[in-house]
Nucleic acid binder design. Sequence first.
DNA 1: CCAGCCTGTGTAACCGGTTACAGGAAAGCG
DNA 2: CGCTTTCCTGTAACCGGTTACACAGGCTGG
Lengths: 335, 335
Amino acid sequence: MGQASATIRDVAREASVSVASVSRALNGHSSVHPETRARVVAAAEALGYVPHAGARSLSLARSHAIGVILPDLHGEFFSEIVRGMDREVNARGYHLLLSNMHADASLAAQAMRSMRGRVDGLIVMAPQLDAAGLDAALPKGVPAVLVNSHDGIGRASFRIDNGAGIIASVAHLAALGRRRIVHVAGPAGNIDARERSEAYHAAMAAHAPGIAPIVIEGDFHEQSGADAVAMLRSMDATFDAIVAANDMMALGVLRGLREAGMDVPGTVAVTGFDDIPLARYLGLTTVRVPLAEIGARAVGRLVDALEGGDLSPDTLTVATELVVRGTTALSPGTP
Amino acid sequence: MGQASATIRDVAREASVSVASVSRALNGHSSVHPETRARVVAAAEALGYVPHAGARSLSLARSHAIGVILPDLHGEFFSEIVRGMDREVNARGYHLLLSNMHADASLAAQAMRSMRGRVDGLIVMAPQLDAAGLDAALPKGVPAVLVNSHDGIGRASFRIDNGAGIIASVAHLAALGRRRIVHVAGPAGNIDARERSEAYHAAMAAHAPGIAPIVIEGDFHEQSGADAVAMLRSMDATFDAIVAANDMMALGVLRGLREAGMDVPGTVAVTGFDDIPLARYLGLTTVRVPLAEIGARAVGRLVDALEGGDLSPDTLTVATELVVRGTTALSPGTP
DNA sequence: CCAGCCTGTGTAACCGGTTACAGGAAAGCG
DNA sequence: CGCTTTCCTGTAACCGGTTACACAGGCTGG
């Protein structure tokens, strides 16, 4: 029925004790007479009493919830990270409050503010915000762990080793004899995109000296990968490899190449970044990022800080690993 | 620094008014003198005041959060549903509190109880719980919408039209001339799995009379699809089509067939269920379920109930659609 | 026999908001 | 000018828990 749930006072009345005793009994305090505890437990059981988490957290100043701010739930990149968080949060007895924040910086600030008093800490993924915007948006009192965001603002954070991943990709392609390597970059302003792009230039200088780097800007979504191929063809560019800044765009690139009748990896080799689950199925050579693990570690670090120690403002860099699959196979046609 | 956030009383002091006026001014009540409102807003701004959502929801008895209970965040099935929810929840000004509940029924009840006082309503996906277990686990006072769960316990719910989907798949295969159709089922106890399995039997009776149906039980994960193929081979079964109860298992089936050197769709045609994003990339014929839309509609219905009307205990059935792709192509080799 | 301690319990303040109700000041009206 | 009405504001109770502090009663020890 629509009857209101029992409160602690109802239980107290039913058990003929004070609310203090009910609270102590149910929270396992030691200074409660066994007989009293039994009466309280029986009364709570009889009334189907469940403590009101909101009231509890107001009084304790702990909600046992952590907020997750992320730009997009689309695609496997963030899903995987959230999955890792969920796993860890479950193990630690916390809850996850999701909030996805669309690109705009003031909306981002808005999203974070709306979490005050709802969560004990924040995990923020905001690759599209610059350092100043991020700093302004973060509420002052709340512990936060940044993931994939501009750091250097004195906050705990995790960063992917973007440079090493791209450099490994380019080196791998160079080892296969490819030199005319194109980069399909992520959106300007995105920190990961920028680092990957810079690494591409550095790697080209090292492995393909004398060859002009070509960068086409995409937006991390699949379609922009296909668009990039179309653009390359309309430019009459010659290329024998494409390094995409993430897997989704690499998939678009593959589609674009297939539609253009260009053989992969025979004519053009392709690499991605992230190693989302899809990549394995499609045989895409890519840079593995332990996404779920990053999520779990971010939660772990935050919860540790909430429970005991303090949050050191270090940036932890997460190693990546090149995973070679069919799209850069040595002999063409080997999928 | 670590200084505590400003409370409404701090703002009141700063603006030299009472807390009541601060509350009224900030919440857009009309009966506040413009001059007072300005002073309050200025003070709030100066102190960086952000209302404490927990306190607010305690007093209003509304948290503007809705809890989502789901069995697993792994795979694209639930990710897609959550994505749809997130979209809708954002539009409606609510938050999403995730909680994934592992198979056990008492843990499920535990998970739901822990949400009392934290959320205004619940969306529950519990295909593995039977009606009694579900009814016992659901807290009494909280409005809830069931998705993909046993219904018939007088709760608002959404169900996928499993029967129609499987029947369409079998009919499609029969139209291609396949008769020896095997079903790789989901885990026993799962309501979707059972309905799909029953529909398979009915469809076989209709489209392949005289042919003994073969069912291999899987667990909805990829590996069990591959295992099913191995089992079929060890049984020396003859078959020319496999209807998997979901896409992940269909992917496993494809892998198993490839490893066994059996041509798809030449020798064996394969269908899945759900149309997760992966299916499109791999050319898997499958039954499309509008996952994101289901999530969004579940949220919509719940929020409508929370804000105004009541929650009618109807079960809404969501239509599916057969999507034909390469794994059941007419001529073999056409991917 | 009484001071002092220990155990178990109750009273009431508090967490940070919202809001019913009361009341003061200014304005309208006869 | 006195009275009602209107507008604005403040006081305090409340949401449902937790817990500092007070205290009653039974023991122990001198």
